[in-house]
């Protein structure tokens, strides 16, 4: 027969509630919790902090569907695709906008053209802009280089018109 019955065992176990941590432990616990959170945050890489802050921002907007990481990744990919598409189309579009269709050059064997030349479709090259030293040759007639209607890095009007 057991000396300790079920009730005494239960009572002894309940008395364990009186086993308490040192005084002030619970009062300091919250401060310790904040300190550990700060330390953990500082240990995180910057990209993860930014990601979590973005996540928090959308969550506070109560846009629950956007807080999921797959949706966020998809959104980032879509934005990247749109941006890259614009960059890819950018130079040719800019050249086509700036040049006048009626003034497009007609390719001929000598590389010369006139304003009366019929309109023709020409594929413009996307070579880098000429530097200021080349700008002086823009309007020279009879030169081998056809005129360009793309602004140079240094407009002709900006060049010094007189010298002492």
């Amino acid at each position: 027969m057991n000396e300790f019955d079920d009730n005494e065992i239960a009572t002894l176990l309940r008395l364990k509630r009186h086993e308490q941590p040192p005084p002030g432990y619970f009062e300091n616990f919250l401060h310790e919790f904040h300190r550990r959170q700060r330390d953990e945050l500082l240990r995180q890489p910057l990209w993860r902090i930014c990601m979590e802050r973005t996540h928090d921002f959308f969550f506070r907007l109560n846009v629950s569907s956007l807080t999921s990481y797959p949706a966020a990744v998809a959104a980032v990919l879509v934005c990247a695709a749109v941006i890259s598409l614009r960059i890819y189309q950018g130079p040719e579009t800019m050249v086509a906008v700036q040049s006048r269709p009626e003034l497009s050059a007609t390719a001929d064997g000598e590389g010369q053209w006139t304003l009366s030349s019929p309109v023709a479709t020409r594929v413009f090259s996307t070579r880098p802009l000429r530097n200021s030293s080349e700008s002086a040759h823009t309007h020279l007639r009879g030169s081998g280089t056809p005129p360009r209607y793309v602004l140079d890095s240094v407009p002709v009007s900006y060049e010094a018109t007189f010298k002492f």
Binding site: E8, T11, R14, L15, H18, E19, P21, P22
Partner: peptide
Amino acid sequence: SLDDVDASIQNDKEFLEL
């Protein structure tokens, strides 16, 4: 690494009965 028993046990009814 046990915690000390708090003095409040002295006022615990079950402790006194036991």
